[in-house]
Design a protein around this nucleic acid. Sequence first.
DNA 1: TTAAGATAGTTGCAGATGCGACCATTTGGC
DNA 2: GCCAAATGGTCGCATCTGCAACTATCTTAA
Lengths: 158, 158
Amino acid sequence: MPKLDLFKFVPFRLNRLAAEVSLALSSEYQERYGLDIPEWRVLATIGFRNEPCSAQYISHCTRTHKSTISRAVTALMRRRLVERVENAHDRREFSLRLTRKGKALYEELIPRLLRKEKTIMAALSATEQRELARLLGKIEKNLDLVQTRQEADEKLGY
Amino acid sequence: MPKLDLFKFVPFRLNRLAAEVSLALSSEYQERYGLDIPEWRVLATIGFRNEPCSAQYISHCTRTHKSTISRAVTALMRRRLVERVENAHDRREFSLRLTRKGKALYEELIPRLLRKEKTIMAALSATEQRELARLLGKIEKNLDLVQTRQEADEKLGY
DNA sequence: TTAAGATAGTTGCAGATGCGACCATTTGGC
DNA sequence: GCCAAATGGTCGCATCTGCAACTATCTTAA
């Protein structure tokens, strides 16, 4: 009889690890700032770029369904963390950017998340961390996931 | 201004990778066999052990909420893939095991999933695969996740 | 023995999210 | 220029899943 030990099965381990890491991070963005994951992804994407971008761009970058991004953007606009302006060239789409308030939140949040990531990754040496990043990158490439900002921009014609 | 590039942020990468890998696998257990993830986790846990186990055990092993496991077990019993017997020592809990039909499905499904895992991991050499497993293990340990069947059994007093 | 607290499992409820339909607008072929 | 197809975004719907309350049973300690 063929057997499969869940604890050695990479897909299961990735799922469980991702869930656990998300949980660890959520204490930062959820409890403290009332953000959920899609909202955090929107902020992270807009905040990192210097130029405004569209909801579609965020959707593709983060591999999150456009309806989910749409709702996250609505919530963030309601809280005045994000604002949008009509695009002159294409009146279907909007350019999104952080408000002053949104920028302030972003600047407060980022160091906290980076610190949290650090404690999680502290189980690995610096070399091991680089190695993990490299291995994840190879699998991502195999699954045809966008790996860099440049790739994202190119794929979306920015 | 502090910056955080999502594409280099390990928690995001893990989330995205886990989602993508799950999607790749779901064509096997979802489309072909009509199983969702919790159901597959129940089958995998029961199928791997030779002795029957409780829903609680599955819940702890897979880090899945007991209500989710409960619903998955109900669905699997309705399909006659899993059966349960009252535990003589403790009438609150039930021992779960695969039916003949469930075992047949398990035996058909496992090789498919292992093949799928193989193609995903094919981006890495054998050495790299071992290295990835080792690194994931270290992070799991840091997050206090159960890593082996023995650990799971001990923690749950089996 | 009994009462309080713990534990196994179920279920109602609410929040989150993916799907698909939809509207408005733009693009491309003719 | 015009119509069909594609694209950006919104929204209703169904599903999934976690939480918390609940029942039933077991354990512990007085």
